[in-house]
Computed example of a mutant assay.
Amino acid sequence: MPEVIFAGPEGRLEGRYQPAKKKTAPIALILHPHPRFGGTMNNQIVYRLFYMFQERGFTTLRFNFRGVGRSQGYFDHGVGELSDAASALDWVQSLHPDSRGVWIAGFSFGAWIGMQLLMRRPEVEGFMSIAPQPNLYDFSFLAPCPSSGLIIAGDQDKVAPADAVQGLVDKLKAQKGIVIDHAVVPGANHFFESKTDELIETCSHYLDMRLAKIAAAV
């Protein structure tokens, strides 16, 4: 798993990158939780999502937003972090011009950034939004949401209450042309303490289902 440094909007960005063996392999970009509350690319959930995609043959990248770890710059309340994510995707796509698609997975703050990024990138074919916070962040930009994906949260999440997440899911499910899967991890709080295995298992099953459908269509 090579350590990488690549150019971002405010200087260098630090990441971990694993290229796939196939030139046409899809790309997965993993986005970490809030930088002001200890979020980094080494977050356990981000780390395990990285390997989940890697094990399924994806070219995979996770990185630190500006001001985190060795990434330069300063926290920018989501505006700059969205630019960071776009730069990260640009960088990995420049190395894999034959890649046949992109997935974005984000956790908490990273879920908000990831959903904004997929609105700007038509090549995104799937997403995983883990513990999004529609009670705190504005998701009205998803009009309409351009990709099918998974929204997953814990039923004991006090940071992103279940009714707020359900409201976001209901809004997106009303849109035509996409399919939004909604999963709830019983007993899990916002950080999935002692429930990370269940979270990753649910995400893995969803990804396998989607990949099987893509393979069947081909």
Results as ranks from 00 to 15, higher is better:
115 M>R: 14
56 R>I: 04
112 W>C: 09
141 F>D: 11
85 A>D: 06
133 Q>M: 09
100 R>F: 03
75 F>Y: 09
83 S>P: 11
87 S>K: 08
63 F>D: 04
86 A>T: 12
125 E>S: 07
131 A>F: 00
134 P>D: 01
111 A>Y: 03
64 N>T: 04
82 L>D: 06
70 R>A: 15
123 E>R: 10
118 L>M: 10
105 A>Q: 13
107 F>Y: 12
97 P>R: 11
96 H>R: 13
51 Y>A: 14
140 S>G: 10
65 F>D: 03
67 G>Y: 08
67 G>A: 08
76 D>I: 05
77 H>T: 07
90 D>P: 03
112 W>A: 07
70 R>V: 15
82 L>E: 00
100 R>Q: 09
56 R>D: 03
142 L>A: 13
63 F>I: 11
61 L>F: 12
71 S>N: 07
141 F>E: 10
57 G>W: 05
73 G>R: 00
143 A>M: 04
96 H>Q: 13
102 V>I: 15
147 S>W: 03
74 Y>N: 10
123 E>G: 10
67 G>P: 09
76 D>P: 01
89 L>I: 15
63 F>Y: 08
91 W>F: 09
115 M>A: 12
76 D>C: 07
133 Q>V: 10
82 L>V: 10
67 G>T: 09
119 M>K: 13
83 S>K: 14
100 R>I: 05
134 P>G: 04
135 N>T: 11
64 N>C: 01
113 I>V: 15
66 R>A: 02
117 L>T: 06
83 S>I: 11
89 L>A: 10
61 L>V: 13
108 S>Q: 00
69 G>F: 06
94 S>T: 10
90 D>E: 12
72 Q>A: 00
143 A>S: 11
91 W>N: 02
136 L>P: 00
77 H>R: 15
49 L>Q: 10
132 P>R: 04
110 G>P: 01
105 A>T: 13
79 V>I: 14
107 F>V: 05
132 P>V: 09
68 V>Y: 04
88 A>R: 00
57 G>M: 05
107 F>L: 15
143 A>C: 05
60 T>S: 10
120 R>I: 06
65 F>R: 08
139 F>V: 04
64 N>Q: 05
81 E>D: 08
53 F>H: 04
78 G>V: 15
130 I>M: 09
121 R>E: 15
74 Y>E: 07
133 Q>N: 07
104 I>T: 14
63 F>W: 12
92 V>M: 03
104 I>P: 09
57 G>T: 07
96 H>W: 06
76 D>T: 04
117 L>P: 02
84 D>G: 00
71 S>Y: 04
124 V>P: 05
82 L>Q: 02
108 S>T: 01
83 S>A: 14
65 F>C: 12
139 F>R: 01
122 P>I: 11
121 R>L: 13
109 F>C: 00
138 D>S: 08
142 L>V: 10
136 L>K: 14
83 S>W: 15
73 G>E: 00
144 P>D: 01
55 E>K: 12
119 M>L: 14
65 F>W: 12
116 Q>G: 15
108 S>K: 02
73 G>K: 01
89 L>T: 05
50 F>C: 06
98 D>R: 06
148 S>P: 06
92 V>A: 03
84 D>S: 02
120 R>A: 13
119 M>C: 08
100 R>V: 06
94 S>M: 03
87 S>F: 12
61 L>D: 00
